[in-house]
Simulated scan of single mutants.
Amino acid sequence: MNKIMIVEDDPKITEHLKAHLERYGYAVTCVTDFDQVMTTFHEVNPELVLLDINLPSFDGYYWCRQIRKDSLCPVIFISARIGEMDQVMAIENGGDDYITKPFSAEIVMAKIRSQLRRAYGEYASKQEERVIEKSGLTLFPERLELTFATQTVSLSKKEADIIESLMERYPRVAGREDLLEKLWDHQSYVDENTLNVNITRVRKKFQEIGLQDAIETVRGAGYRLNITWKEDE
């Protein structure tokens, strides 16, 4: 069952979309706190996002850029804005498609099915999938999944990037600057706490698949993957 997240501040439109999508068997989550869009995104990990432009606090362009930092999932803008530049801005900020209001529910469904096919189905890229493996720990970067033994956990794009760096550097230390350079554009300001927050999230993902103390902090240098559990078995 594909998971779809709706980011729309008009309750009537939200309920209309939700009811129609659920009728076709999709699992739907509707954002209600528009200051916490990414919190909901990380909790749900949707396969597709329907995103309005005119939203409280920050507009849809902003939230699409935030999503693109973590995920390549399809984003379809749904907006009352009909200007050509609005549609250009949507694509330039990471959107995959654009639907103008008022809209036909069947058009929305057709575009959703098309994007899901392109991203995950019959039209998805057929190039060989990358797989990174170290001592029983397997990362699927494009699939955003991490597997150990019989346990599998879903990842955000940032989490996958951090784990990929740790696995590629193992048994060496992955420096803090190296991780920051991989995760964020060098022109963007990132405070020191941002990497710490993401490392904490990655540690929790390891714990979900039964691995405690999987990341070792090397003071003054960075982080090192700890895969000594394989030797201890």
Results as ranks from 00 to 15, higher is better:
residue 22 E to D: 06
residue 184 W to M: 08
residue 47 E to V: 03
residue 2 N to M: 11
residue 85 M to T: 10
residue 128 E to G: 08
residue 104 S to G: 11
residue 225 L to T: 05
residue 78 I to Y: 04
residue 197 V to K: 14
residue 127 Q to M: 09
residue 122 E to H: 06
residue 113 R to E: 15
residue 171 P to H: 08
residue 24 Y to G: 00
residue 225 L to S: 04
residue 84 E to C: 06
residue 172 R to K: 15
residue 183 L to K: 02
residue 49 V to A: 02
residue 17 L to F: 10
residue 98 Y to N: 04
residue 139 L to N: 09
residue 92 E to M: 10
residue 25 G to E: 08
residue 148 F to Q: 00
residue 157 K to T: 06
residue 44 V to R: 01
residue 200 T to N: 12
residue 130 R to V: 10
residue 222 G to R: 03
residue 122 E to L: 11
residue 22 E to Q: 06
residue 129 E to L: 07
residue 8 E to Q: 03
residue 84 E to T: 12
residue 21 L to C: 03
residue 107 I to P: 03
residue 168 E to Y: 09
residue 75 V to D: 01
residue 62 Y to W: 10
residue 119 A to D: 01
residue 134 K to H: 07
residue 102 P to S: 03
residue 116 L to A: 04
residue 119 A to Q: 00
residue 222 G to T: 02
residue 9 D to W: 00
residue 104 S to M: 07
residue 36 Q to N: 14
residue 179 L to A: 04
residue 43 E to H: 14
residue 171 P to V: 09
residue 109 M to C: 07
residue 152 T to F: 05
residue 45 N to M: 14
residue 40 T to I: 10
residue 191 D to T: 13
residue 140 F to L: 08
residue 28 V to R: 06
residue 126 K to N: 08
residue 16 H to V: 11
residue 70 D to S: 14
residue 17 L to A: 10
residue 5 M to R: 05
residue 181 E to K: 12
residue 8 E to K: 07
residue 226 N to E: 00
residue 129 E to P: 06
residue 63 W to K: 11
residue 89 M to R: 13
residue 60 G to M: 09
residue 48 L to N: 03
residue 1 M to K: 10
